[in-house]
Design a protein around this nucleic acid. Structure first.
Lengths: 249, 249
DNA sequence: TAAATTTGTCTATTGATATAGACAACTATA
DNA sequence: TATAGTTGTCTATATCAATAGACAAATTTA
């Protein structure tokens, strides 16, 4: 063996408290199967030793995860991992919210949080092929699966072409269904740009996340089959609940 | 306008210190163009008011970003945004490290950090179509562009078929070139699964990141044109330096 | 040159974070 | 039914994070 193993220590005075770093590690260990679902976590003392911190610090991390609904602690018995797998959200040429999660969830839908008409910013105008400042309709939506928020999206449409899409969206709860009211029976994903950051205050509230949570961010343009841009969107996915599976684009 | 605007406050007693949250916001503002590159940031007092914190807290955030090389502070003049754009790393059917960043960087290469032979774990065996426990070669690599680390990858190959690929990698500094030594002139990306998390201690060191940094994680399988799996890999990209552009898969 | 603006440094205080130890409460098991 | 193992609660202490105010140092502007 050349080289070295992965270090397993935590960072002090980093701006991120130890209990949150340990909470993140426990979440990661659960997601990789290192800590099995429905099974007991190692005892607090063992975790404290493993991460090189005090037992009380581990307790803070566990308390946060209990609060988040990831763990359940039982006095005298142990602390148990509740089963909530990360959903795998497919991204491809025909990315659709509802169909992609079939088989993984029993229920899923989109909620329209807000809508407005506004002038297009530079990047949105570019994405939609409009002049900067042209009127666009903005839809703020939240995707939910089995009652848990799993996405938070902002979508923009040409206001002239898609007048009333906000109402259609509120009524149908589906982008696909709303677009079909405007004669668009098929659309493709032209481009997707992906990044990640800490959730901001609005995302924390909308996605029911704890401060410090990470969101995956996609910026995408959907087009008609003949290449006409119809939708520009930015979506945020909580990284602790969702992974993105890139299928044939 | 229905609904509400994005909240612009920060979270207290969240496990993430205010100065780090503000540092993240400033980074985000720079990446969205809200704070222009090569221009002065608003004065500390203005930022303190904007984020609802004390001037000293803003100073802590700025100090961290100066440390990271994002800002430069000059007494009496102001604090300036240095220009370091986020690179756009394309992911598609023919994802290649070097070619994808052409035009964005003047120099890029891969460094082999370590290699070893080990038995395949469950998920790696599945990915490569081998029996669990079969011998695989593991390569630990770092990708760099213009002298800055931009990726940290672990790749596994069937040890029987690719004996000596570690040496080839060390000599050529290229996965593509190494594979061609084994008669593989073309390969495709079969699948990519994407997630994000905080960088662990090893990533922090290897990618020259500050604690609390976020990494994008891709888990991918590369196959020959006839569908034979040849490489299983997990790559970490610093979210502050890289965004992933999903092109035609 | 004087005034205004902006970053840099210092002291002081408060609350959150982390460590340490002791013991209570509860559960499983020998 | 003891006993060992586990989580829950309490006190105490030290360090980090955040606020507050004052003033110095450097630069720009009137």
């Amino acid at each position: 063996m050349i080289g070295r193993q992965g270090v397993d220590s935590i960072e002090r005075r980093s701006g991120v408290s130890l209990w949150r770093q340990i909470a993140d590690r426990i979440l990661h260990a659960i997601s990789t199967g290192d800590f099995a679902e429905n099974a007991a976590l190692p005892p607090e003392m063992a975790l404290a030793e493993r991460y090189g911190v005090n037992r009380h610090t581990v307790r803070s991390a566990i308390a946060a995860l209990v609060q988040e609904g990831v763990l359940r602690a039982e006095q005298g018995r142990g602390t148990f991992v509740l089963s909530r797998k990360r959903l795998s959200y497919p991204i491809g040429t025909r990315t659709r919210f509802s169909t992609g999660l079939q088989g993984q969830t029993s229920e899923r839908h989109i909620v329209l949080l807000a809508s407005s008409v506004e002038p297009a910013s530079q990047r949105i105008a570019e994405g939609l092929g409009l002049a900067k400042g042209a009127e666009v309709i903005r839809l703020e939506t939240r995707g939910e699966a089995d009652g848990r928020p799993i996405s938070r999206a902002t979508a923009w449409f040409d206001a002239r072409r898609f007048t009333g899409i906000d109402k259609a969206m509120a009524e149908t709860g589906s982008i696909t269904a709303s677009l079909s009211r405007f004669g668009i029976d098929d659309y493709l994903r032209q481009s997707t740009v992906l990044s990640a950051r800490h959730a901001d205050a609005a995302d924390l509230a909308d996605l029911d996340l704890q401060p410090g949570a990470i969101v995956l961010v996609t910026v995408a343009v959907n087009v008609t089959p003949d290449g006409q841009p119809i939708q520009f969107s930015e979506s945020r996915f909580p990284a602790e609940r969702i992974e993105l599976k890139l299928s044939a684009l």
